[in-house]
Design a protein around this nucleic acid. Structure first.
Lengths: 196, 196
DNA sequence: CTGAAGATACCGACTGGTCGGTATGCTGTC
DNA sequence: GACAGCATACCGACCAGTCGGTATCTTCAG
């Protein structure tokens, strides 16, 4: 519908993904999107507002099919989690950009959380949704005898999300596929210990 | 010994810790350290060189007593790892700056790895040393019957370091002590599963 | 069907300020 | 007088953001 706005959003996402939010330039974004500074500030009243829009309109929607939706299927949550991690690791290792740039949400989280409360809260909500999806899947798995009753689901979900951030963060620094696969497999073995 | 240089290093560490490397200003650093830009460029020929010096002369040395040295004691490596994590979590939760700013090495790793190969390699080496220390401790634990022989030590070390990055990264975004303790405890339970 | 009125969607030159970096000068010590 | 250890003044590039203006589309009265 709103073509210019969408082009700006997409160009801004790429610019910030590559250079960070602080390092990203609105001039570059205008240039790359084919729009002008005037158009940019017509749709977003500040650089920060543009950043918020990227979190909510670009990054979050793109994360759902990878990290949230798979958990809704009613099979074995542990096997689902393992498959989800293995698939996302495999997918991202195939993308040279992902290997060197890591996870866009995590990047913004690390860069902007201490600097801008609005960023922090929006990103926090995003991770909370993911943790909640994991807790729900594990709890429902308990009911169906797929997960040990003694598992502290909140703790486990916190650890899994932390692992995810850490694994993708490690990839960004090391660019070592082996290391990413290794830590993914170790996580899978941890998940196995949660089975009855 | 070299007092002005040290003051610049310390001020630069704080500036970059708070604002990121790209966001940090050499003017602020000169001002805060009481030195001038002339002095700054006398000791460091560029902003990048100043950053490298911080990694190797400020951040890395400060990480050793927290993350490497404890692993050298010859007791039970799993209990040592658990105690190390619990202690570092407790310590950092007590520091409001750590809670909101996270781990300085991880911050630089995330921000600078894709932008500067020199940064990336220096930081990579730092994390490799940590992984190696964990592998060595676990292997030596195997020998002494403290760790299951079947444990894939490289994989586990990769996961532990990733967890560490993720837990501290999560803290930076959420500022939620509970969440940090929860994921720490979940990690401890995972470590317990490595015991014979 | 016409046309005035207003809203929306841009355009791009411009501004004040900050940035990393440099050129040059001064000062004390050996 | 040579040289380390600064200090000061300054540079061009770049930055986020502004502003006066225009072109086009929507609305609605006559």
């Amino acid at each position: 519908m709103d073509n210019t706005r969408d082009r700006i959003l997409q160009a801004a996402f790429e610019e910030f993904y590559r250079n960070g939010f602080q390092g990203g330039s609105l001039n570059h974004i205008a240039e790359k999107s084919g729009a002008t500074k005037g158009a940019l500030f017509h749709y977003f009243k500040s650089k920060a507002e543009l950043g918020y829009a990227i979190v909510e309109e670009v990054i979050q929607p793109s994360g759902n099919p990878r990290w949230i939706d798979p958990l809704k299927e009613a099979g074995d949550p542990i096997e689902t989690l393992k498959a989800m991690f293995r698939r996302n690791i495999r997918e991202d290792l195939a993308s040279t950009e992902m290997v060197s740039q890591g996870c866009p949400l995590n990047n913004l989280a690390q860069e902007m959380s201490p600097l801008d409360e609005e960023f922090r809260m929006r990103i926090k909500r995003s991770y909370e949704r993911q943790r909640k999806a994991i807790v729900d899947a594990l709890e429902s798995g308990k009911q169906r005898g797929k997960v040990k009753k003694s598992v502290a689901t909140k703790e486990v979900a916190a650890l899994i999300v932390a692992c995810q951030m850490g694994i993708w963060g490690t990839m960004r620094n090391t660019r070592d596929a082996q290391l990413m696969i290794q830590s993914g497999e170790a996580l899978c073995r941890f998940l196995d210990t949660l089975k009855p």
